Simulated scan of single mutants.
Amino acid sequence: MVKVDMQTSAGKIVLALDADKAPTTVANFVEYANDGFYDGTVFHRVIEGFMIQGGGHTESLAKKETRDPIQNEANNGLSNVRGSIAMARTNDPHSATAQFFINHGDNGRLDFRSETSYGYGYTVFGKVIEGMDVVDKIAEMPTGAQGPFRSDVPQPLVVIESVRIIDSE
């Protein structure tokens, strides 16, 4: 288990990452965290009852350059339930880079079902162990259009101030 301290402008979130079930995904997230990549990024997509997504855009909503995508590990037995953290991706199942989302509701429809682009799912790689009240606060914020996004941007922006690994077993 890897423990992560995420400081945001809305409060602190502590995550427990499951390196046994999602080793590539956890290693990828830890590398971005250790590089300081997430510092100063924002939660740019917030949908109450669904999820809060961040980790890829600056406070000006410019997209950050990332490393190459990683292999999807959604077929790991972990589920997109409330409080779990998963990798965001495009329609390509193996396109996840740095962006992640924290599930605000139970989203089993995002779980692995088959090795097709539609059924591949989104890799869950950990869960919130402290600060779900902060996730709720972010998810309940008013949203609107801003920068390149037509909707779902929290008003005001929620900044990810820092992401630090605080324990690794």
Score class of each variant (00 low, 15 high):
Lys3Phe: 08
Asp5Pro: 00
Met6Asp: 13
Met6Tyr: 09
Thr8Ala: 15
Ala10Trp: 00
Ala10Lys: 03
Ala10Ser: 05
Ile13Gly: 15
Ile13Tyr: 15
Leu15Cys: 07
Leu15Trp: 13
Leu17Ser: 03
Asp18Val: 13
Asp18Arg: 03
Asp20Asn: 09
Asp20Pro: 00
Asp20Gly: 03
Thr25Ala: 15
Val26Gln: 04
Val30Gly: 02
Ala33Ile: 06
Asp35Ala: 14
Phe37Tyr: 07
Phe43Ala: 04
His44Asn: 01
Glu48Ile: 00
Glu48Gly: 03
Phe50Ala: 11
Met51Val: 10
Gln53Lys: 08
Gln53Cys: 02
Gln53Ile: 07
Gly54Cys: 01
Gly56Phe: 04
His57Leu: 05
Glu59Asn: 05
Leu61Thr: 04
Leu61Gln: 06
Ala62Val: 12
Glu65Tyr: 01
Glu65Cys: 02
Glu65Leu: 04
Thr66Tyr: 06
Asp68Cys: 02
Pro69His: 09
Pro69Ser: 14
Asn72Thr: 05
Asn72Trp: 10
Glu73Lys: 14
Ala74His: 01
Ala74Tyr: 03
Asn75Ile: 05
Gly77Ser: 05
Leu78Ala: 07
Val81Cys: 03
Val81Glu: 10
Arg82Cys: 04
Ser84Glu: 05
Ala86Gln: 09
Met87Ile: 04
Arg89His: 13
Thr90Lys: 13
Asn91Leu: 02
Pro93His: 15
His94Ile: 12
Ser95Met: 03
Ser95Glu: 12
Ala96Met: 12
Gln99Lys: 03
Phe101Leu: 13
Gly105Asp: 14
Asn107Arg: 14
Gly108Ala: 14
Gly108Met: 03
Leu110Cys: 07
Arg113Trp: 13
Ser114Phe: 09
Glu115Arg: 11
Gly119Asp: 12
Tyr120Pro: 00
Tyr120Glu: 08
Tyr122Ser: 12
Thr123Lys: 01
Val124Leu: 10
Lys127Arg: 06
Ile129Met: 08
Gly131Ile: 08
Gly131Phe: 11
Gly131His: 01
Met132Ala: 12
Asp133Ser: 10
Val134Asp: 05
Val134Ala: 01
Val134Arg: 04
Lys137Met: 02
Ala139Glu: 00
Met141Arg: 02
Gly144Tyr: 15
Gly147Pro: 00
Gly147Gln: 12
Arg150Cys: 10
Ser151Trp: 15
Ser151His: 15
Ser151Val: 09
Asp152Ala: 09
Pro154Leu: 01
Gln155Val: 08
Pro156Val: 14
Val159Gln: 04
Ile160Asp: 01
Ile160Pro: 00
Ile160Val: 14
Ile160Ser: 03
Glu161Lys: 05
Val163Cys: 07
Arg164Leu: 10
Arg164Asp: 15
Arg164Ala: 11
Ile165Leu: 06
Ile165Met: 11
Ile166Gln: 01
Glu169Gly: 15
Glu169Leu: 06
